[in-house]
Design a protein around this nucleic acid. Structure first.
Lengths: 199, 199
DNA sequence: GTCTATAACCTGATAGAC
DNA sequence: GTCTATCAGGTTATAGAC
């Protein structure tokens, strides 16, 4: 884990851009915010990255991989059971999202704002339709569209983080308590998913 | 259902603002976009609503009520069982969201972008902690934080709509097929929620 | 490579004719 | 009430000194 102390100027800008873009979205962030957050000045952003848009594309590509790539190795593992995979997926997502709580809302909003910009760039399609995990679901429950169960599993893992700003704002559950709650879910979701497989 | 033909100028602007704000979010919409969408000119927006921000506040307040108010009458109904309520909530949300698929992503993003602006304005707190529905969950499963089951139920209902732009963009499921899929869930979610209650 | 100053452009809001 | 033209301020990007 490199720290700011010895980070290159380029890396300082990237790190600041990560923070600001993911917190406020593309349209609402000002390049001045990124410059200030990085402790550097505005001109350097263009010196290193040519434009706000180019800088954004770098961050966005990185975040798309982070969101959709987290479970890629799990869903195509041919050596684990359906039940094990479900638990692994929940665990992987929650562990990653506790450190990046704003990630899903950021990526999904930006895709909404610019649908044509992605499309093919997202391997979510493969995970949701062609993965070994989906095949295992189909074998177990040939009577139901496997997408239903995928959405339930991903929703149970990711949805709490999408709601976090509301839960915080409405004082339903905040800070550490929220983190404890989602940590509990690492184990519960596997159990719940099994129940859904039987239902 | 009034149509544009006899809608007042004020209503034309509101209707255009609804469309543009919910599709692109506050920061990314230009008042010019709203003017064009309404078929009117820029100056009229300020004539009727003073500023972009005031116009936005009207739309946002409306959308917050739409998102959080949809299930308010259901969760406090003292005459229905836990199981019935779960099915009713799924049905109410999905029915409403098929006509407003972008609503959750819009409202949740804007709250993230401006957390302090809301906070108290959202009765989500009451629904998630003080509703009769939550009491019924606690009675049935005193061993688990009822928020877990609320998040699962709301996630199963709402999460597919949050993913819709990705599902469309990655060609996983589009248009009519998506609508059929979520329609199926109106009945399935009640069954699934019962399974979670037992798990 | 890094900075300050500024150009070029865009956006929200208004003035004023009709 | 509605429109065109325009202002004032902010934002991205660049020029040019160091």
């Amino acid at each position: 884990m490199k720290k700011d102390k010895d980070a290159s100027t380029e890396e300082k800008i990237i790190e600041a851009a990560r923070k600001v873009f993911t917190r406020k979205g593309y349209a609402a962030t000002r390049t001045r915010d990124i410059a200030q957050e990085s402790g550097l000045n505005l001109a350097l952003l263009n010196y290193y990255f040519r434009s706000k848009e180019k800088l954004f594309e770098i961050i966005m590509a990185e975040k798309v991989v982070q969101l959709f790539g987290t479970i890629a190795p799990i869903v195509n593992n041919m050596d684990t059971s359906l039940e094990k995979k479900a638990g692994d997926i929940a665990d992987a997502y929650i562990t990653m999202l506790v450190n990046n709580p704003g990630l899903p809302l950021f990526v999904l909003s930006e895709i909404r704002n610019n649908p044509q910009m992605f499309g093919d760039k997202i391997h979510a399609g493969k995970i949701l339709t062609e993965s070994y995990f989906v095949k295992q679901i189909q074998e177990r429950r040939p009577d139901i569209n496997p997408l239903h169960l995928m959405l339930n599993l991903l929703g149970m893992s990711i949805f709490p983080f999408i709601c976090q700003p509301v839960l915080e704002g409405a004082n339903v559950i905040t800070g550490r308590a929220f983190e404890s709650l989602v940590a509990e879910r690492k184990n519960l979701i596997g159990i719940w998913f099994n129940a859904l497989l039987e239902a």
